[in-house]
């Protein structure tokens, strides 16, 4: 039975208070994928995650907000590692996901973890064929692909969350992530 949603708690307050969950998930996914891009997906399937092109890190809110957008086609994330080391948090990432049933590129914001601007690589082109049947077929196909993408994202988030709420988060995962960062940071930057 899943955990009950807390009673008498304002949704917006709780969402704001726990924004770090999405930020930590993206950070965990990113740093883990940099070491090994293969994750377990739904049903034991292989899910390959790569962080591509762009990573947005931010510190603070409102007027005091400081944001860094790392555009990185060569996977050199040293600027992003440094930003992480001085307190900026990953708020949005552009990544690719490859599974046995689909490949896609998309953006993932930390606040909702709902995919944005999803581009599927192995998708029948809906505009080449005309007529209502092909249009409905393309629509059903897109809905099925998005369902599979959400299932894969949910599975990864659940994996993270299980780890995050267990003792091995502080005993193993955090030290591993910190060691990874330290080994990639420029000398003299605190972690």
């Amino acid at each position: 039975m899943p955990a009950p949603y807390p009673k008498n708690v304002d949704f917006l307050d709780l969402w704001t208070e726990k924004l770090f969950l999405g930020q930590e998930f993206l950070t965990w996914l990113w740093l883990t994928a940099e070491s090994d891009s293969v994750f377990n997906g739904p049903g034991g399937s292989e899910t390959i995650i790569r962080f591509e092109k762009k990573l947005v890190l931010q510190k603070g809110d409102g007027l005091g907000r400081s944001q860094l957008v790392c555009q990185n086609p060569d996977h050199d994330w040293s600027e992003a590692y440094t930003a992480l080391g001085v307190g900026k948090k990953v708020i949005k990432a552009h990544l690719t996901m490859s599974t046995p049933s689909f490949e896609c590129a998309f953006a993932l914001p930390a606040d909702t973890l709902a995919p944005m601007s999803v581009k599927f690589e192995r998708e029948a082109n809906p505009v080449e064929e005309e007529g209502p049947k092909s249009r409905i077929g393309a629509f059903l196909n897109k809905a099925a692909l998005l369902t599979a993408l959400n299932a894969a994202l949910d599975y990864l988030f659940q994996t993270f969350l299980t780890l995050r709420l267990s003792a091995s988060w502080t005993e193993e995962e955090l030290p591993r992530l910190k060691a990874f960062l330290e080994s990639h940071l420029l000398s003299g930057v605190r972690v």
Binding site: Y5, W15, K18, Q158, L161
Partner: peptide, 24 residues
């Protein structure tokens, strides 16, 4: 969103831990 998904994904006994979780 992450917190509402979280409550759906974790077992009942971890609900309190999720509610009390602080940033790492």
């Amino acid at each position: 969103v992450p917190i509402t998904l979280g409550f759906e994904m974790i077992p009942q006994e971890l609900g309190e831990a999720l509610l009390k979780a602080q940033a790492s």
